[in-house]
């Protein structure tokens, strides 16, 4: 058993949590709503984000045992479970990002610690520090091409890939979990900036923001 102190970052009481985009959405009197939107933008708030670091072999065993998923070993691989709600993404040779439905992350962290025991690893709950934006629609790729220097052509960026790269003047983790849907994992402090950038970049295609 690991002797690291853990704590639940989201206690089950009545305290209100605000997603990183709450303020930006609140500031707008009404959310953008195009009649025939080429871009559909929405936030996926309050998901559980865990950054797991350590040796690939021990982590793979633990993740298989706890989540019944294999740890992606290839660079930039992104795997999801059958429901598509739980994903593991390769970030660097010894670092992975696990995203699970909100509320599951603390139990998952405890189970992983239990399984990993005294091996050399680190698990950090970064749920409060970042959020996920979903970018869908016919012109989603065009918007990304304006904002990101990385090649987002389907040949270079197939489904099941995720990279961390430069987005405008911020950093994002760009993921493609499905054919017509892109996900941007953005930092809390850059959420407003990224949101405004996306609205501006997609205005020419018609944009709808959904909650």
């Amino acid at each position: 058993m690991s002797d690291v102190k853990e704590f639940e970052t989201r206690p089950a009481d009545t305290s209100r949590a605000e997603s990183p985009l709450t303020w930006s959405l609140h500031e707008q009197k009404s959310l953008p709503h195009a009649s025939n939107p080429g871009i559909i933008l929405s936030e996926k708030p309050f998901l559980g984000h865990l950054v797991v670091r350590g040796g690939a072999i021990v982590l793979d065993e633990a993740v298989r045992e706890v989540m019944d998923m294999a740890l992606p070993a290839k660079p930039h691989a992104l795997v999801s479970d059958d429901s598509g709600e739980r994903t593991i993404q390769w970030l660097s040779p010894d670092e992975w990002l696990i995203i699970v439905p909100g509320g599951e992350e603390f139990a998952l962290e405890q189970k992983l610690r239990q399984s990993l025991g005294q091996s050399h690893f680190s698990i950090v709950n970064v749920s409060g520090g970042q959020t996920v934006l979903s970018l869908k629609g016919k012109w989603a790729r065009e918007v990304l091409m304006k904002s990101i220097s990385y090649d987002v052509h389907p040949q270079a960026f197939p489904v099941g890939k995720g990279v961390s790269t430069v987005f405008a003047k911020a950093t994002v983790i760009l993921r493609r979990a499905e054919e017509d849907g892109w996900e941007l994992v953005i930092r809390r402090s850059f959420a407003d900036y990224c949101y405004r950038w996306l609205l501006d970049a997609s205005s020419e295609y018609g944009v709808s923001v959904t909650r």
């Binding site: 660079p75 930039h76 660097s92 040779p93 220097s149 990385y150 990279v163 790269t165 430069v166």
Partner: peptide, 11 residues
């Protein structure tokens, strides 16, 4: 050599 692909200098 870790990501095994070419990236822009700004990264």
């Amino acid at each position: 050599p870790y990501c095994k692909e070419h990236r822009e200098e700004e990264e």
